[in-house]
Structure formats: C-alpha cells, structure tokens
C-alpha cells in the first residue's frame, strides 16, 4: 500500500466527508421533523391529511432513494424549478428518511398501553398533559432503538449522493481511482472515513439505549 499517496488524498477525503456530514445531518434533521408531524397526524387520526401522508409514507418507503433523487434532481428543473445537487440531496434524504422516521415514531406512540393513557386521564390530566408527561416520554424510550437504526441507515444512504454528482466520499474515491489507479489506497480511505461518520453514532446510540431502557421502561 502506498501510504504517501493516502496522506496526499487525506484533504480531499476530509472535504468530501464534511460535505457528506453537512448534507446528511441536514437531511436527517428534516426527516425527524417530517416523521414527527406524520406520526402525530396519524396518532390523532386527523382526517384527510392522515390519508394523504399515508400515501407519501408508502411511496417513499417502498422505492429506492437513488431514484427519488433522480426524479427530484432531473425532474424539478423541467418544471422550471432549478435545484442544486446539495439541496436535492438534503431534500431527498429528508423525504426518504421522513417516511422511515414516521413509522418508528408511530409504533412508539402505539406501543404505550391504553391503561397508561386511561389512568392518566382518570387522574384529571388533560389530553395535552397526558401526551406530554405520560405518553411521549414512554414512546420516546420505546422507539429509540429504531430511531438510532434509522439515523445509521440514513447516513449509509448518503453514499448515493455521488449519483447526482455531489462530491461526496464515493465520488471522490471513484474519481481518484479513475485518475491514479491507487485502488486499494482509495478503498481503505473510503472505509475508514465511513467508519468515522457512522461508528460514533452507533456507539453513542447503544449507550443511550441501554440507559433509556433501564431508566424509563423498567425492563
């Protein structure tokens, strides 16, 4: 392995990682917001809106992000809406991730037992108070594992950004392989940089998960 070449490539990979992180986390933040809205609309059985969002979730969950990105990236300009690759990446990831987050939050809300809700109501708390003090804290602990899994999944999904010519890690690796044929070196760097992105999330997630499970659920 040519370590010198790897050192030379480091700044390029670093820059690419920063781009991946920036667009990735903006997209994930968006997916959390979308997921929360969809889950709450579903939970409170808001008419019409609930059905509309259901269709959104089914479409985005059951098709690949790559094609969603193509559709947005090449389609929107044809409608006269110019969109940059970075905005497209973040929007696409948010919409794709939102459908996954919605499922995770919804199952958390549904998993809080009716007796919990009823006993809080029978104490004279209002619906809003029941939601805030009793249902949400438990739902959060219940859906946390799938929430972390979704974040990791979405960080992995950022690897397709190169398809809409974002200069992310995949793009950089492929580019350098094509230019200098330092295949092994580039692949090693690619793996290392993805580890840097995802490993901390995985570790922190499982630590918090263990604590939540003990603190909140008594399991």
């Amino acid at each position: 392995m040519n370590v010198e070449a790897m050192v030379d490539y480091l700044p390029l990979f670093w820059e690419a990682m920063m781009l991946t992180l920036k667009i990735g986390w903006i997209g994930i933040a968006g997916s959390i917001v979308i997921g929360l809205v969809v889950a709450l609309v579903d939970h409170f059985h808001v008419p019409v809106l609930r059905q509309v969002l259901r269709v959104y979730v089914e479409i985005f969950r059951n098709t690949p992000l790559l094609i969603q990105l193509f559709f947005i990236y090449f389609g929107l300009p044809r409608l006269g809406i110019p969109i940059g690759a970075d905005v497209c990446g973040a929007v696409g990831l948010a919409l794709h991730g939102g459908s996954y987050m919605a499922e995770s939050f919804r199952s958390g809300l549904d998993a809080v037992s009716d007796v919990q809700r009823e006993s809080a109501l029978s104490l004279g708390l209002t619906r809003l108070q029941v939601m805030r003090y009793v249902v949400l804290p438990q739902a959060w602990a219940l859906c946390f594992p799938s929430f972390v899994a979704n974040i990791i999944f979405l960080l992995k999904e950022t690897s397709v950004f190169s398809a809409i010519s974002l200069m992310d890690l995949m793009f950089t690796a492929k580019d350098l392989i094509g230019l200098y044929y330092q295949t092994t070196e580039c692949l090693v760097l690619l793996v290392i940089f993805y580890l840097i992105i995802i490993l901390p999330v995985s570790i922190v997630g499982s630590v918090i998960e263990r604590r939540l499970r003990y603190g909140s659920l008594g399991a």
Binding site: I152, S159, M170, A173, I177, T184, L190, V191, Y194, L195
Partner: peptide, 15 residues
C-alpha cells in the same frame, strides 16, 4: 450494520 452497501460494492468490485 455500519458500512454502506455501496461502499461494500466498491470494495468487492474494484478491490
């Protein structure tokens, strides 16, 4: 769990 499938594809295909 951690490696994107696309990275694995690259590693196997090019590697």
């Amino acid at each position: 769990r951690i490696m994107p499938q696309l990275v694995l594809l690259f590693v196997v295909f090019f590697g």
